[in-house]
Amino acid sequence: MSGLAVRIIPCLDFKDGRVVKGVQFEHLVDSGDPLERARIYEAQGADELTFLDISATVEGRKTMAKEVARIRRSIAIPITVGGGISTIDDAARLLDSGADRVSVNSAAVRTPKIIGDIARQFGVQCAVVAIDAAKNSAMPSGYEVRIAAGAVPTELDAVEWAKEAASRGAGEILLTSIDRDGTSLGYECTLLGLVAHAVGIPIVASGGASKLEHFLEGYQSGASALLAAGIFHRGEISILEIKNYLAIHNVEVRL
């Protein structure tokens, strides 16, 4: 028994400083205010928050840093920020604004050195490597890394890339299944299991969770943390429901 609780992590997609996905809370119509959303999730027992910046402009990224700073002042749980981080300066700006960790995705594939740079400068726990993987039977593990929001295949084996990321100093892997993302089919547990067994750092499961049992399956596959977005934003499942469900299945959760 590790003693450590499995983390439940809501993910918020930002564009130009606003939350852009699945904003369907009845009482939050037309809100899209990330601080309001973050406060609700913290109160519901979120163990951590992940922000993904999908802004495509320099202005949008500046707005993101300001939003992180605003949210940091009132949120007392860890915040990971990803999306568009391609230099150590990008990482530094977000950490200065109040992110506790940064996740790198495409930039890490293009320039793997950035992983070690972030780990050395800010600590291993700061360096999250986000991997978007899709099924490809030509790969030894059966999964291929994709970059640029899933659009571009890389011919990199997902499990091999995870091992390299860990050896370069990543403190965590945020592992998203492109095949499952946006579906309701549950996490890609085979992929989770392969990566969790291959590396000695924590894995965050992402993509496809929509039912309580999906979270249990993700945990049982070796994930240390379980991420979801739409189901939380739409109010379909609460964080507390997930934790209660895991607790009755003897999984350690923070209640």
Binding site: A5, P202, S224
Partner: peptide
């Protein structure tokens, strides 16, 4: 020293 993922990341008692 253990067979658990390192760093320890998350909530513990």
């Amino acid at each position: 020293e253990n067979n658990l993922p390192l760093p320890q990341l998350g909530w513990n008692r």
